[in-house]
Design a protein around this nucleic acid. Structure first.
Lengths: 202, 202
DNA sequence: CCTGTCATGTACCAAATGGTACATTCTGCG
DNA sequence: CGCAGAATGTACCATTTGGTACATGACAGG
């Protein structure tokens, strides 16, 4: 029973360690000690240091995807509600450590680190597609949904960076609320009285 | 003349090196070789490895601030124009390497790395204050300006993360345009027909 | 010319690194 | 039981690491 499971337990423990102690400048031995094993075992299960980091990146990506999937249910077709729910979930203090790890891996990946690259390739595209599919169920055409999903993700990620850096929950909450307000309603259905945009004035 | 200048030249070269080759797992000796000096000299000028990273972080933060300051001029009081100009500037491919370095440092800092911490403390707050000051010249109250500046920065940063990861310029441009459209006009001047907010229950 | 200060090179160090070789235990299965 | 294969421990390795000690170079001002 230990076959794949031991490895998975280790992986979970390593992620937890990276979550609390950071992933920069961590040697196999330090990691091993922190998760209660030997650096020999990490090599055994993951092949190499980069192999370990690769699996960590994959797992983090998978968990992020799971986060987002959890938001799929109970949609009422109001995009502002979706972005609010997403923000509420993702800004939960209990997840802060994980989100920090996510961004640390992401930053590394941006600089060409091979081990963390899967994060770049799959994460965003997966989110967009999930969103497009979800939007289709309430009648939003795919191309429209895609661009709005993109914007919604950018807002939440940008504000999450802000929140993690400053800890200013009230400020970031307020900013998200401003955004959500402008997305209230079923705006994608063409005519419906005067639209949200305040084209007058200016 | 070499006094502070040699150090500054080195710092610039190191940043350039980090920009192209990444900052993860770089030893003093590798850095030194890349910038044409000895690891001994890096220690001499920056005290320690962390000292070097600290100065890199400070400099990157200073350059980011300078980026934003460059956007201050020629405002016409239209917030959508400001966010468009900001995006145009920040998404310039020529700056991509630098932005990647920025996010890599940022991610590190989020995980508690002391050397890169100044990025967290100063960068965002500086941007907010600059924006509030700028907005004041066109009559936007400070508290309103602050929350909108926050949102604007989040959108650009979030989309920048997207662009750097996917390279999808058309997609990110389109998302920004959707955002900007909803910000057209001088929306902060209170009464002007029905407001945007749709105070729904819950 | 001498002397002091900044800059740089050379040589070195103990410690830590990722990885490997080999022996050993554990465990499920025929 | 006995044995294969996975899991783990021990010991080791060459290399690299950040940092230091010390000598030397450049060069300004007295």
């Amino acid at each position: 029973m230990t076959g794949q499971s031991a490895r998975e337990r280790l992986l979970g423990a390593v992620i937890e360690h990276f979550t609390t102690d950071g992933l920069a400048d961590q040697s196999l031995r330090r990691i091993a000690e922190a998760v209660g094993t030997s650096h020999r075992m990490l090599l055994y299960h993951f092949g190499s240091r980069d192999g370990l980091l690769l699996d960590v990146a994959r797992e983090v990506e998978a968990r992020s995807k799971a986060e987002l999937a959890a938001l799929g249910g109970a949609g009422d077709g109001q995009t502002d509600e979706l972005v609010r729910r997403m923000w509420d979930y993702v800004s939960d203090p209990a997840l802060a450590g994980f989100e920090r790890l996510f961004f640390a891996l992401y930053g590394r990946a941006l600089q060409g680190d091979e081990a963390t690259e899967p994060l770049l390739r799959d994460d965003l595209e997966g989110w967009l597609q999930a969103n497009v599919a979800m939007a289709a169920t309430v009648g939003v055409p795919a191309d429209v949904a895609r661009v709005h999903a993109r914007l919604g993700l950018a807002v939440t990620r940008g504000l999450l960076l802000d929140l993690l850096a400053t800890g200013d929950r009230a400020g970031t909450d307020a900013a998200l609320e401003v955004f959500a307000r402008r997305y209230a309603g079923r705006w994608w259905e063409p005519a419906e009285g005067p639209t949200v945009t305040s084209d007058r004035a200016s």
